Structure formats: C-alpha cells, structure tokens
Amino acid sequence: TRRLSELRVIDLRAELKKRNLDTGGNKSVLMERLKKAVKEEGQD
C-alpha cells in the first residue's frame, strides 16, 4: 500500500468515498480523515 502522503487528492477522495466518508476539504483534511478511518478499521 502506498503511503497516504503519496496519494493525490483525487485518490484520497476515492478512498473516502469507498468508505462512505465525507470527501470535502483540502488535502490535509482528507488525509487526516482517511488516516483516522484506516486506524479504526485496523482495530476491528
């Protein structure tokens, strides 16, 4: 898996959309949101 920081905004939005998460905001907001989601998934 590529590091989140290497993803483009369009990629971040696609990942968030797959998880039914909000896709609004700038790159840093999107990255934080996705990071949190990935962390929570890992705790399942």
Rank of each mutant, 00 (worst) to 15 (best):
D22W: 01
E40I: 10
A14P: 05
N20F: 06
E32A: 12
L30A: 06
D11F: 01
L30I: 11
I10L: 12
V29F: 01
R2V: 11
A37G: 07
K39T: 15
K39A: 11
R19M: 01
D11P: 04
S28L: 11
V29K: 08
N20G: 14
K36W: 06
S28T: 15
L12G: 01
L12Q: 05
K36M: 08
K36S: 12
L16C: 11
R8Q: 14
S5G: 10
L21Y: 01
D11I: 00
V9W: 01
R3V: 09
R3D: 15
Q43A: 13
K27Q: 08
K27W: 06
L4F: 08
T1Q: 13
G24K: 10
R33P: 09
Q43V: 11
T1N: 15
R3H: 12
K27M: 07
A37Y: 10
G25R: 01
E40W: 06
E32M: 11
M31E: 08
M31Q: 06
L16S: 01
K27A: 03
S5F: 04
T1S: 11
A37S: 06
M31N: 04
G25I: 00
E32F: 01
L12V: 00
S28E: 13
S5R: 08
L12A: 07
R2G: 15
R33G: 09
E6V: 06
R33I: 00
V38G: 08
V38W: 14
K39W: 08
K17W: 06
G25C: 03
N26K: 12
K39F: 05
A14W: 12
S28C: 05
Q43E: 10
M31S: 04
R19Q: 07
T23A: 11
K18N: 08
N20D: 12
L4Q: 08
L16G: 05
V9I: 05
I10G: 15
D11T: 02
R33D: 03
V29A: 13
E6S: 06
R19G: 04
E32D: 14
V38A: 09
L7D: 08
K18A: 13
E6R: 05
E40P: 04
D22Y: 01
L30G: 08
T1G: 12
D11H: 00
G25P: 00
K35P: 10
T23C: 09
K39N: 11
N20K: 10
K39D: 15
R2L: 11
K39I: 09
M31L: 13
R13P: 00
Q43M: 08
T1V: 06
D22P: 14
L34R: 04
L21N: 00
L7Q: 09
G24N: 13
K18D: 03
G25W: 00
N20T: 05
L4R: 08
L4G: 08
L21H: 01
V9K: 03
E40Q: 12
N26R: 09
E6P: 04
